[in-house]
Design a protein around this nucleic acid. Structure first.
Lengths: 200, 200
DNA sequence: ATTGCTTTTAACTATTTGGTTCGACATAAT
DNA sequence: ATTATGTCGAACCAAATAGTTAAAAGCAAT
């Protein structure tokens, strides 16, 4: 029978690993640092997750799922495209505000190591649906511009706000707290911006 | 006296290093891979640039300079703010199109290892000048929105287009060539978008 | 308490990787 | 041609780090 604290330890390790991986990336992270962060011996890591690779996979799976949950695209036909976009941004900012480091980590590992994507899952379709919605709206004269470009613009405004954290903090010379405040204000700004930015 | 091929080899190493560092990041890059890429023995790297750290510094310096050149902010009082923003985007897209991987690399290393910034230089001011210009324009009723937010939006639209390359390629299921085409189209789109997006 | 399982630690091994030394060869200066 | 200096690779070294093994410690059922 399993001892009671296994779940705790395992969760603690994953949390610690997530933290370190997010800060240093896969290649930069050290198992020792993860172990220290989790308050256990380094070999216990191997006991729970045979290898660094395996541990990373676990963390990545979770992070990726979080990212998907963060990028909810409403399928409801009752709301207008602009409202869909606003809902997207609203939800995205809420989630991202609670874990601003996730965006750059995703982008990063995505880039360094594109193949990790394939193993996990194919998300695909909702994006195309939204682009299609935008397309229809453009044809109706409700929006202006090339649908793909509109979509990219929306994503940029949301994702870069967090992926560019370090860069922006340096440019604007602001600390973590001020940054969070700025992003809270940005949420409202973006939702309002989306309302008018693509109007013909 | 220096033998003739020193310059070539040195340049070849730097080019190779840049390539590998951009793909794998500082921590992920291997000297062997850089040497192979440059077509020389691994020890020659040490001959030219004593250590990995030193080599990275050199590459980073160049890359950073490129990034600054890419982000030119016009100081001319003769042109309107919107025109300044358009000029910024125009120039940025031109430069970025010739080396799309640079953006994510910058963001990345910036994030993993914020201290590398401090050593190089303090760029600072032109950004504040532009934000000030935007502020004035907002006060005149020429633009609408919080100046910092407008600035961040502009940066997002430009930088994320390239920093999010891997992510976008995966989302839209497109190859490198198609991506470049999309970004060429995006340049025109963004310049046009900036003209109207912040209008009151 | 004994037994049997689970968890954790300590000690060890293997591998990867950055860095050094030294000699061979090339090129330039005399 | 000889000498001096620059270029570069083979072999080696040392440190860091991932991974293994085996034994100790902890917990729960009997």
């Amino acid at each position: 029978m399993k001892h009671v604290n296994e779940i705790d330890t395992e969760a603690a390790i994953k949390a610690a690993a997530k933290k370190v991986f997010m800060k240093k990336g896969l290649a930069g992270a050290r198992l020792q640092e993860i172990a220290d962060e989790a308050g256990i011996g380094r070999t216990a890591l191997h006991y729970y997750f045979r290898s660094k690779e395996k541990l990373f996979q676990e963390v990545w799976r979770d992070v990726f799922k979080e990212m998907l949950e963060r990028s909810v695209i409403i399928e409801n036909a009752e709301v207008t495209v602009v409202e869909k976009m606003q809902l997207f941004a609203d939800h995205y900012f809420d989630k991202a505000l609670s874990e601003p480091e996730l965006d750059i980590f995703m982008l990063n590992e995505f880039n360094n190591n594109p193949e990790i994507m394939n193993e996990i899952l194919q998300s695909g379709s909702p994006i195309m649906l939204m682009i299609n919605d935008i397309k229809k709206a453009v044809e109706c004269g409700e929006l202006k511009g090339e649908p793909q470009q509109i979509f990219i613009t929306m994503i940029s405004i949301c994702v870069f706000s967090f992926a560019g954290k370090a860069m922006m903090q340096n440019m604007l010379k602001i600390d973590d707290e001020t940054y969070i405040k700025l992003m809270k204000a940005r949420k409202a700004y973006v939702i309002d911006f989306l309302k008018t930015a693509f109007k013909p």
